[in-house]
C-alpha cells in the first residue's frame, strides 16, 4: 500500500475523486450526470489555473499568498476597463498580475524576503489599492463583457466548457514545460537545494523572478476566467480561493518543502476540491466550515505525505 501511494499517488487521487462522486450519487441519486460533470469542470477551471501558479512557486519551496488578491484585482480592472475596449480590459487585467508577480519576485529573489511574508504583504497592498481605485472610479461594480462571460461559462456541444480549452492548453504547457525544459528543471533544483544549484552555475534569482511573475500572470488569467464563470467582478471575487489554491497543490502531491511534485497532481487536486465543495454544498455546510476543512486537509495531507514518502 505504501509503495502504491509512493509510486502511483495520482491513481490513488483519482480513486478518491471517483469515490467522492459516488458519495454524491448516494446522497442524491441521479445527480451525477453529464451536466454535473460539465459544471464541475467549469468551476474547477479557474481554481486549477490559480493553483497552477501556486504549483510553480511551491516547487521552489516558496508560497504565494497573493494569488487570490491578484485574481480579484485583475478581474475588477479588466471589467472596469472593458468599456474602453475588451482587449484593453484584458491586457490591463493581465498587466496587474505581471506587475504584482514581478514585485513579489524582486522581493523574494533579489532582496531575499521570506516568500510567505513578501506575498502576504503584497496581497494586502493589492487589495488596499483596489479598494482605493474602486472608490475613486465613479461607476458601481462593473459588468463583465460578453466575451469573458462566454469564456467563463459558455459550453461547446452543450457540455464541454469553453474554459476547459484554455485550462487544457495551459496544463499542457505546464506539464511539458516542467518536465522537458531547462526552466522546469531549475525550479525543481532550486526547491531541492539552492546551494547545490548555485554551485552548478545557476543564477537562481533570475529563475525565481521569472517564476513569481509567471505565477502572477496565471493568477490574473484565473481571475478573469472566474469573473466570466460567476458573471461578476466584485471586490471579493476570488478571495475564497486562496486556501483551496494551496490545498489543491498539496493534495496533488507537491511537497510543501519544494523540489518535487507535478501539475498533473494539482489538476486532480483542484477537481477533488471542487467535487468536495459540491458535496458540502449538498449537505448545506457553511462557508466558514468549508475553510476550516480546507485548512485541515492541507495540514493532514502535508503530514501524511511526509510520513509516507519518508524524509529519512
Amino acid at each position: 500500500m505504501v509503495r502504491l501511494v509512493q509510486q502511483r499517488s495520482i491513481v490513488v487521487l483519482i480513486a478518491l475523486l471517483v469515490a467522492l462522486a459516488g458519495l454524491i450519487e448516494v446522497i442524491r441519486p441521479g445527480a451525477v450526470n453529464a451536466n454535473w460533470v460539465s459544471n464541475i469542470l467549469e468551476f474547477a477551471a479557474p481554481l486549477g489555473i490559480l493553483a497552477a501558479g501556486q504549483t510553480l512557486v511551491v516547487i521552489t519551496s516558496g508560497i504565494d499568498l497573493s494569488v487570490a488578491n491578484v485574481a480579484t484585482a485583475s478581474a475588477y480592472i479588466m471589467a472596469s476597463q472593458a468599456p474602453f475596449g475588451v482587449t484593453r480590459g484584458i491586457i490591463a487585467g493581465l498587466l496587474v498580475g505581471i506587475v504584482v508577480g514581478l514585485v513579489n519576485g524582486v522581493g523574494v529573489a533579489v532582496f531575499r524576503v521570506q516568500p510567505l511574508i513578501m506575498t502576504l504583504a503584497m496581497g494586502l497592498v493589492v487589495t488596499g489599492t483596489l479598494n482605493v481605485y474602486s472608490q475613486a472610479s465613479v461607476r458601481s461594480v462593473p459588468g463583465v463583457p460578453d466575451v469573458i462571460h462566454t469564456l467563463g461559462s459558455g459550453t461547446v456541444l452543450g457540455y464541454v466548457p469553453v474554459s476547459l480549452f484554455l485550462w487544457a492548453l495551459l496544463a499542457a504547457v505546464l506539464i511539458v514545460g516542467l518536465r522537458g525544459t531547462g526552466f522546469g528543471r531549475l525550479l525543481y533544483a532550486l526547491g531541492d537545494n539552492p546551494e547545490a544549484t548555485r554551485l552548478a552555475g545557476v543564477r537562481g534569482w533570475q529563475v525565481l523572478l521569472a517564476n513569481y511573475t509567471a505565477c502572477g500572470l496565471l493568477s490574473a488569467v484565473a481571475g478573469i476566467v472566474l469573473a466570466g464563470t460567476v458573471n461578476a467582478a466584485d471586490l471579493s471575487l476570488a478571495n475564497v480561493l486562496l486556501l483551496p489554491s494551496v490545498a489543491a497543490v498539496v493534495i496533488g502531491g507537491t511537497s510543501i518543502f519544494g523540489g518535487s511534485g507535478s501539475y498533473a497532481g494539482t489538476i486532480v487536486g483542484a477537481l477533488i476540491l471542487t467535487v468536495l465543495n459540491s458535496v458540502l454544498t449538498l449537505l448545506d455546510v457553511a462557508d466558514a466550515v468549508k475553510q476550516v476543512l480546507y485548512g485541515a486537509i492541507i495540514v493532514l495531507l502535508a503530514a501524511a505525505y511526509t510520513r509516507v514518502l519518508g524524509r529519512e
Partner: peptide
Amino acid sequence: LRQRSVRENIALPLVNRFSRWG
C-alpha cells in the same frame, strides 16, 4: 539534489549551460 533522480542531478550543469531555460 537529494529528491531528484541520478539523471537530473548529473544533467543539471549540462541543462543550465546548453538548454538554458528552453
